[in-house]
Design a protein around this nucleic acid. Sequence first.
DNA 1: CGCAATTAAATTGTGTAAAATTAAATTGAG
DNA 2: CTCAATTTAATTTTACACAATTTAATTGCG
Lengths: 148, 148
Amino acid sequence: MEKDEAIKLNNQLCFSIYSLSREINKLYRPFLEELNLTYTQYLVMLVLWEKDSCTMKELGDSLFLDSGTLSPVLKRLTKRALTYRKRDPDDERRVLISLTEEGKQLKETAAEIPGKLINKSGLSEEEFSKTLFDFTNLLQQIQQANTE
Amino acid sequence: MEKDEAIKLNNQLCFSIYSLSREINKLYRPFLEELNLTYTQYLVMLVLWEKDSCTMKELGDSLFLDSGTLSPVLKRLTKRALTYRKRDPDDERRVLISLTEEGKQLKETAAEIPGKLINKSGLSEEEFSKTLFDFTNLLQQIQQANTE
DNA sequence: CGCAATTAAATTGTGTAAAATTAAATTGAG
DNA sequence: CTCAATTTAATTTTACACAATTTAATTGCG
């Protein structure tokens, strides 16, 4: 590509991905509003629905986020009584995050979201799977590039 | 997909694109630090390097962002003397945003970034083009879904 | 063992995003 | 022409991201 072409907004991979990410976020918003969750709070809940309980560190490893982001998110989820926190007795540096009964129950409602989303997106099951596969592969490649 | 599978974090399209977006942002960061620009500020500059001058509204249409986000970004770019703002005499509601000489000159340095990025990402020219094409198409599809 | 290095969270500060509100200018239906 | 509706930006509020710093607990080298 010519250098003058290469610097144009619509030739930036970063911009298409950035826009797509916000646009997909927007697709979720009406469903998440019903649960009274933000997008990030939803991601945290997804992790906890798989594990019931984990440390702040494990949560961060799953979501690629640090305590600077997660501490305030957990503070809000705990205030809403969806989660609770306590120090790990075996290692007082660690914080164990767990779901309350209310937090566990919310999974029932949330389980409807992925289906609704695929439906609303207009993607077929196959397109969805292929896109997820492609995104995941690219993510790994970029993560690799970032650690070199 | 089974409902229990569908609600897992790593089967969420939203999470893969969200992680990918942040990871790509991270790939840019060292280069943008050299220019002393944030990612969003870089996007604004990309638009202005193509047009030299535009209104806040046009900038927002290009980047899919509103004045709530862009006003403070422009305030910072103007403080750094890369841009300047003045009301449109033909329609006082509008704000005309323009590049200063310093802002124009920064394009020379920035023009190196896209090449460096492709290189660092490990993608071939073909992979890059195909990925850009796929993302742009998907973006349009999701934007369509969001307006229905 | 003792203490320097490491690890885990929380906190602080900066910069977006997005929704909602406000204010000012312009438009257009009657 | 006139005023209600619309348009454009800015502001306010809430909630992330991320870097940098702080604090407390744990590890492990000498």
